[in-house]
Design a protein around this nucleic acid. Sequence first.
RNA 1: GGCCCUAUCGUCUAGUGGCCUAGGACGGAGCCCUCUCAAGGCUCAAACCGGGGUUCGAGUCCCCGUAGGGUCACCA
Length: 522
Amino acid sequence: MTVRTRFAPSPTGYLHIGGVRTALFNWLYARKHGGQFILRIDDTDQGRNQPEALQPILDGFRWLGLDWDEGAEVGGPHGPYYQSEKLDRYQEAVRQLLDKGLAYWDYARPEETKAEMEAAEKEKRLKIYSRRWMAETAADRTRFEAEGRTGSVKVKMPREGVCKFYDHVRKDVEVQWAGEQDIVIQRSDGTVTYNLANVVDDYDMKITHVIRAEEHLSNTPRQIFMLEGLGYPRPEYAHLPFVAEPGSKNKLSKRKIPQYLKNADFKKIYDHAKAIADHIGVPAAPESFNPVLVDFYKQVGYFPAALLNYLVLVGWATADNREDFTLAEMVREFSLERVVQNPASLDVKKLFAFQARYMQALAVAEKVEQVLPFLVRAGLPADRDFVTRVVEAAGPRMTVAGDILEYEYLFVPDEQIRFDAAVATKHLAAAFKGAASVPPLAEVLPKLRAAVAGVEPFTHDTLKIATEALATAEGAKPGPLSQVLRVAATGREVGFSAYDTLAVLSRDRCLARIDRALQQLS
RNA sequence: GGCCCUAUCGUCUAGUGGCCUAGGACGGAGCCCUCUCAAGGCUCAAACCGGGGUUCGAGUCCCCGUAGGGUCACCA
C-alpha cells in the first residue's frame, strides 16, 4: 500500500511557520516512502474563508518547494480537494451514522448546552451532555421542531470502555470513551464540522498516515469512532509536538504576534527584515509581516532550503544530532520514530544562523542571482558586473538576499552621498593619535585624494599601498586614514574594507565623491 | 476543574542502566586577527525540576509531587 499523507490548511491568508513544519513532516514521510502528499483545503467554515486567502498559502508552499501530488489547483483522482465542494458527500456520511444509530438529532438550544456545561464545571463533573434534547424518534423530532427548535446532528459517543490506538510519536494511547463529548457533526444550518469532514476526506483521499500537531491528539478518539462507524479503515497516526512561542511553551499563535515582538531576539530579526522591507516598499505591519509567517522570510530574501533545514530540527533530530540537511538528505534520514515528544519553541536567531550558512555556501555568481531582484525592487541600478564586484567584496557579510541593500550607498548617484565632516574628523584624529598635532581635514583630504587619484590599477592592494605611503609621510596611522577616505566616498563609516569600497566604486566615482566632500569643506 | 501530554545548558537537542567529569549547535562572554562592520581561529560560562524507590550502579526504569502545556465549541 502506498503511503499517502496530507496537509489541510484553512485559507486564512497567511502561511504559518508551525503549519509548515507539520506540512514538511508529512511531505518528508510521503517522499521517503515513495508515496503521495496531498494538499487539501479545509474551508468548511464558509464565513471565515475568502478565496483570495488561499493564494498566499499556495504561493508559500511553492516557494518552499514542497510540492503536492494531488490537491488544490493540481487536482487528482480523489477530489474534490476543497471541503466546501463536498457538502453532499459529508451529509451522506452523516446520514449513514444516523442510520446506524451512531449519531442523533439534537435539539438543545445553544444556551441550554452552555448551561449544562457550566453546571458541570461548577460541580466539577465530567463535561458530558445529558442527551436531554436528543430526538430518538421521528415523533421526537416533530415535537422539538414544534417548539421552534432547530436540530443539529451529534455523534453518539460510547459511555464505557476505552479507545486504544497506536501513535508513532506517543506510542500506545488509551483514553476512556466516557470522557468523550457528543460533538456536533452537522450544524443546524446543514453544514458539517471539521471532525466529520476530516474523517470522510481522509477516507476518500486514501490517506494512510495522519501526521498532525499534538493539539489534535484529543480529536483522535472521536474520529476513530466515526470512521469505524462508517466502516473506514483506520489510518496510522503521528502527533507532532507543537511549535511553541519564542521563549515559552505556549502554542504559537498568529494573534499574539505583537506580543512576540517584545522578545528581544524576535525583535532583532524583525528589525533586520523590516529595514529591507522598507527599502523595497513591502508593507511591514506586524499583522502581515512577521517572523511567524513564511511570507516574512520570502520577502526579505531568506532561502527556502535554510528555512526548511531549520524547521526539520524543530521537533526532530538524528542520533548523531547532525544539523545540516539538504531536502534530499532530510528525505533519506527522516523517521517518525525520531520525532521528539516535547514542544519546541521557535528560535528565529537559530533560523538566521542557518540562513547565514546557506548564504555563505553560495558562489558569488549564485549570490548575485539572489540579490539582483532586490536591487530592482529598490529601484537601484542592477548592473550584473557591478553587483558581482559588490557581492565579492561583501564576502561573508550578507546573510539574506535583501542585505545587498545595506550597500545602497554604492548604487546611488554620487550626488546623493552626504559627507559628514564631523565623522571624518573623528577618524582623522584617530589617525594622528599620538602625533604632536592633528592637521585639519581640509588639508589632509586633498592629500588623500592626490595619493589615490593616480593609482594604477585602481584596486584594493594599490590603494592600500598608496594610503600607507601617505600615512608614513605624514606620521599617521594608515588604518584610520582609510576610514577618512571611506567617509568621504560613502558618507558612512561601516562596510567592507575601505580599500575594497573605493575599488568597487572605481576611480571616477571615488574622485567625484571626494571632490564633493571637499567642496563642502571649503 | 476533568481528561491527556511533556520535563537535559537561555534555545534546539544527543543520550534507551555503566562509555556522562552529560556531547553538539544557536545564542552569550573573552582573546587573537583587524581601517570600520562582519567572517574566521582559539578559549570560557552554561543543564539532567524535586522527592522517594528499583539496582552493585540511574539523566536513562517505577511511583509521588511540582511546573508547564494541550483539550474539553454548531473553530479548524
